[in-house]
Amino acid sequence: MPARADAAENRARILAVAREVAGRAAGVGEIRLNEIAKAAGVGQGTLYRHFPTREALLLEVYRRDVDEMCDAAAELVRDLPPAEALERWLARVEEYAWVKQGVFAAVETAMRAEVSAHSRHRIAEALDLLLDAGRAAGTVRDDVDARDVVLLIGYLSALGPDERGERARRLRTVVLSGLRP
């Protein structure tokens, strides 16, 4: 049975607020469900009906971010020149990295493996699509693959909150330069 419209709207608002909170959180203590419920305009009971635990909420935020980010690769390849598509997708990966850091800081170690397993395959598929388009257009080297790019963008996990702007953009430019033939 599909969810009622108001229930679906509540769930969407809860996820949007939780994503924002996770994106700026430095640890689990900064992610308070009562504050998320209040900011989303719902009661705590509503939040707990949708997400019985903080981990359940944060895992859904993470999964949704990975899915939206990876689904965007096909749109970007369809709508933009390959080099621009790859650049925009990497910019989106930066946003995802901040949410991932917040989620990983808040969930148990056992859940991290589940979260990582979900994203690893989807991200590789999205990167393959972007890299294949770039190779076909002559804007991406022939000798790189998705795993190479994942390793290159590992810098995102080392950036502190104060480095998420200019330094992240500069490093993305370095990665993109290195991918060119």
Rank of each mutant, 00 (worst) to 15 (best):
E60L: 04
A7C: 08
E35Q: 11
A126H: 11
R32Y: 05
E114H: 10
G154H: 03
A74V: 12
L176K: 01
F51I: 14
A40N: 06
P82Q: 08
D162K: 09
F104N: 02
A106F: 04
A25Q: 03
A97K: 00
F104A: 02
I14C: 07
V175C: 10
E95I: 02
L80H: 14
M1D: 06
P2Y: 03
A73N: 12
P52S: 08
T139L: 12
E94L: 07
E9A: 15
E55V: 08
D143I: 04
V115S: 12
G41M: 05
E30V: 06
D145G: 15
V175F: 00
R120E: 02
D65M: 09
L59K: 09
R19H: 10
L129M: 14
M1I: 14
V17N: 03
A8H: 09
R13L: 10
E166M: 15
L59D: 07
I123Y: 05
R49A: 07
D128Y: 06
G102A: 05
G134A: 14
Y96I: 09
D79Q: 09
E75S: 13
R24T: 14
I36D: 04
A37W: 00
L151E: 01
S157W: 00
A74F: 06
S157M: 00
L57K: 05
E60Y: 04
P2E: 03
H50Q: 12
L176V: 11
A124G: 12
E30Q: 09
F104I: 03
A12K: 11
L127E: 11
V28Y: 00
Y62T: 00
I36K: 02
W98C: 04
W89H: 06
G165I: 13
R120D: 00
G178Y: 02
K100E: 07
V140K: 06
G102C: 04
H50N: 13
G29D: 11
H121G: 13
R19K: 03
E166A: 15
G102Q: 01
A113I: 14
G102F: 01
R141G: 00
I14Q: 06
R167G: 08
R112I: 14
A56S: 07
L152I: 12
G43T: 15
L156M: 13
A110E: 01
D6K: 05
L156Y: 06
L156C: 04
R92L: 10
V66G: 06
E95F: 02
R122T: 04
A26H: 14
I14P: 07
A85C: 14
L47K: 09
L171Y: 00
G138Y: 14
S116R: 15
R180T: 09
R169W: 04
A85E: 12
A56R: 05
W98Y: 10
E94T: 06
R19P: 10
L47F: 07
R135H: 13
E9L: 14
L76I: 13
V17H: 08
A73E: 13
D142K: 09
D143P: 03
A25P: 03
R11V: 09
W98D: 05
